[in-house]
């Protein structure tokens, strides 16, 4: 069946079985591979996108449910002139990603949180940021969210150094 919706402000129409998860339509039909497959059961958040501005795990959302709605993916966060979203900039400044695979989803979750509450406090960050990261980038994710919302000045390297005898 043909299903129409918008992705990153561009109208699209795809031919897909209605039960196909949005994730696979984005990745395989629309070649938007920034949205990742991690678990297929909405447990890890790697596939997070915004649907009408709300955070959704696209691996478990049938594409038939998004007909007529507006999808934003990681590729659509930057502004028309190519300037990265403040959260993406904070992610670079804080050197958050390691393997990077979960980071599209983390950034989509963080931008949705900031959109919802403005300047999230620690407890709100704890509650909202449930996406999994195996590399353990959580401390830098936390700092980048605080920095993106003007609650921290992030000096990238917080490790300290000392001399010692060999």
């Amino acid at each position: 069946m043909a299903i129409s919706f918008t992705v990153n402000d561009t109208p699209v129409s795809v031919e897909a079985e209605g039960d196909t998860p949005l994730l696979w339509v984005l990745r395989e039909d629309l070649a938007l591979t920034g949205t990742k497959f991690g678990c297929g059961v909405a447990a890890c958040g790697a596939c997070s996108v915004h649907v009408d501005g709300k955070l959704v795990r696209s691996c478990s959302l049938p594409v038939s449910d998004v007909a007529g709605r507006a999808i934003t993916t990681i590729e659509g966060l930057k502004s028309a002139d190519g300037t990265l979203h403040a959260v993406q900039q904070a992610w670079i400044a804080a050197q958050v990603p390691q393997c990077g695979y979960c980071q599209s989803g983390q950034i989509m979750a963080a931008t949705a949180l900031i959109k919802a509450v403005g300047r999230p406090n620690e407890a709100q960050i704890d509650a909202a940021m449930t996406n999994l990261c195996r590399c353990g980038t959580y401390p830098r994710i936390r700092k980048a969210i605080l920095a993106a919302t003007g609650q921290a000045v992030y000096a990238a390297a917080s490790a300290t150094m000392g001399e010692g005898a060999a």
């Binding site: 447990a43 890890c44 940021m129 449930t130 999994l132 959580y138 490790a159 060999a166």
Partner: peptide
Amino acid sequence: SNFTDYPLITLADAPAEVDVHFINSGA
């Protein structure tokens, strides 16, 4: 079978900050 029964630590359960210090011993 999945992250539902193989749980990884989440941001909320990880320490908010890890204080890392290096000793440049030259070894």
